[in-house]
């Protein structure tokens, strides 16, 4: 059995999977699908793999998964030996994971859409989409600042979970769609904390943190 990802490099949803695999230090074969400009995700060959025509798609042996949230759950349960990325210690934690996985779709549908509009000229009502994107980021900001008061750096507790991975890409990519981070200090701090994780990888539009040189010794 080996993992295989059908990937588009500019997709935030594909990046969720690439990022999580990197954080888990898990190898995966990757096939690039020419979403733009080739629209290969709508080609008969690809529709045979995923009739919905969406990316990413992950296969593991006979299993084919076509949704980034489902893929994160699967990878966490199967390949995370630490058991910290998808903690299912109690009912409330499991429920919160579900909540943030669903919230991540809200970010894709708003912030992610605005980005596709601004970057690849895909049609949408840009003003309404940006307004909805700001509303979603405000929700995230409010939760993360409360987490800060509790001394917690991540969406659930003080260690990162798949909830953070699911919400991170489109929150980080918001400026690509004309949605600036200025009003969301807790979100900005959280984005930096995720970029600091060991084995973090970047995607276009999300830059890695550059190592700061040590202070010169006096």
């Amino acid at each position: 059995m080996s993992l295989h990802l059908y990937d588009y490099v500019l997709s935030g949803n594909c990046y969720k999977v690439r990022l999580f695999l990197a954080l888990l230090n898990q190898h995966c074969d990757v096939t690039a699908v020419d979403f733009f400009p080739g629209e290969a995700h709508l080609s008969p060959t690809f529709l045979e793999i995923n009739p919905a025509g969406t990316l990413p798609v992950l296969t593991d042996g006979d299993l084919t998964l076509c949704d980034s949230a489902a893929i994160l759950v699967y990878l966490a349960q199967k390949y995370d030996n630490s058991g910290t990325w998808h903690p299912s210690t109690d009912a409330a934690t499991s429920a919160w994971i579900q909540f943030w996985l669903a919230f991540a779709s809200k970010l894709s549908d708003t912030v992610g859409q605005a980005r596709l509009h601004d970057m690849l000229n895909l049609p949408c009502d840009i003003d309404a989409t940006r307004t909805a994107g700001h509303r979603a980021l405000r929700e995230l900001e409010s939760h993360l600042s409360e987490q800060g008061f509790r001394g917690h750096r991540f969406l659930i507790g003080d260690t990162p979970t798949i909830a953070d991975i699911a919400c991170f890409p489109y929150a980080a990519l918001a400026p690509d769609g004309g949605i600036e981070h200025d009003d969301y200090p807790a979100v900005r701090r959280w984005l930096v904390d995720i970029r600091r994780l060991p084995r973090f990888i970047e995607m276009p539009g999300i830059h890695r943190l550059h190592d700061q040189a040590d202070d010169p010794t006096p």
């Binding site: 588009y8 490099v9 500019l10 096939t31 690039a32 699908v33 020419d34 733009f36 400009p37 080739g38 290969a40 970057m119 400026p175 690509d176 276009p204 539009g205 830059h207």
Partner: peptide, 21 residues
């Protein structure tokens, strides 16, 4: 693969885009 060539170039250009803007 053609897809890899395209996405290599798109990676480079989209890294530039966020700086340019």
């Amino acid at each position: 693969a053609l897809e890899d060539l395209i996405q290599f170039q798109q990676t480079i250009f989209l890294q530039d885009r966020s700086i340019l803007e």
